[in-house]
């Protein structure tokens, strides 16, 4: 049943020092639909492709807002992401209540990393099966972080998670200069949608499956859904 003897749990190293269970959790991200995140000096944009199980069901939420200044898009197990969203919301309101301040995004991402790392070193429980692209603003400007089930959290200019995300990543790598210096939010969103389009196979973007969110130095975290995304299709 198992591929080898060393992949049954998170507390067993393989002879080469790998943790297969954690690597498999990373695979769960790829089961999810694509999401792309990218930033300029002033804005961060998240773009996601929503999925529905069958024609009659609604679309699964792809982007979750966790406070006035931050939110994330997800790929992988959505229920796991909701747990992490609740955790983030707690941290955000703690900082608001106790210090009267906006949470530092770097600090927040370290807390998430810490939470995820625990699941990779103890037998009980399992690693989170979800990857997040966290977009937010704080006193030090705008930031985009990628969260992984391994407990790694890295700050990037752009990233893509989920099925066929490589195409999106390649677009982001090739166009880094043009969107990094981009002043306009609209143009940045267009870059995001273009990156997303690189990864599409059978799907077409519609008002019901495209989800967009942005945050900027002078803008709160905002989700754009439904007919409001029509102009970006």
């Amino acid at each position: 049943m198992f591929r080898n003897n060393y992949d049954g749990d998170t507390v067993t190293f393989s002879p080469t020092g790998r943790l297969f269970q954690v690597e498999y959790a990373m695979e769960a991200i790829k089961q999810g639909s694509i999401t792309v995140g990218l930033r300029s000096k002033k804005h961060v944009v998240l773009v996601g492709l929503k999925r529905n199980d069958d024609k009659l069901s609604s679309y699964q939420k792809k982007i979750i807002k966790c406070g006035t200044n931050l939110g994330f898009s997800l790929s992988g197990l959505a229920p796991d992401a909701r747990i992490l969203a609740n955790f983030i919301k707690q941290q955000v309101s703690y900082n608001e209540l106790v210090y009267g301040r906006d949470i530092n995004i770097q600090k927040l991402s370290e807390l998430l990393a810490q939470k995820a790392q625990k699941t990779t070193q103890t037998y009980s429980g399992r690693p989170y099966g979800v990857g997040l692209l966290i977009a937010g603003k704080d006193n030090t400007g705008v930031h985009l972080y990628e969260f992984q089930p391994t407990g790694n959290v890295i700050e990037l200019y752009g990233s893509a998670l989920g099925a066929r995300s490589q195409g999106g990543k390649t677009y982001l790598e090739n166009n880094l200069e043009s969107y990094l210096e981009e002043e306009s939010l609209e143009e940045l969103i267009k870059h995001g949608v273009s990156a997303l389009k690189q990864t599409l196979k059978d799907e077409t973007l519609t008002v019901s499956n495209l989800s967009i969110a942005y945050v900027g130095e002078d803008q709160d975290f905002t989700i754009v859904d439904g007919y409001d995304v029509e102009k970006y299709l």
């Binding site: 943790l19 990393a113 810490q114 995820a116 790392q117 990779t120 070193q121 391994t150 407990g151 790694n152």
Partner: peptide
């Protein structure tokens, strides 16, 4: 080594 483990130790 595993960076997340390192952060755990530092904490």
């Amino acid at each position: 080594g595993l960076i997340p483990d390192g952060k755990h130790l530092v904490n």
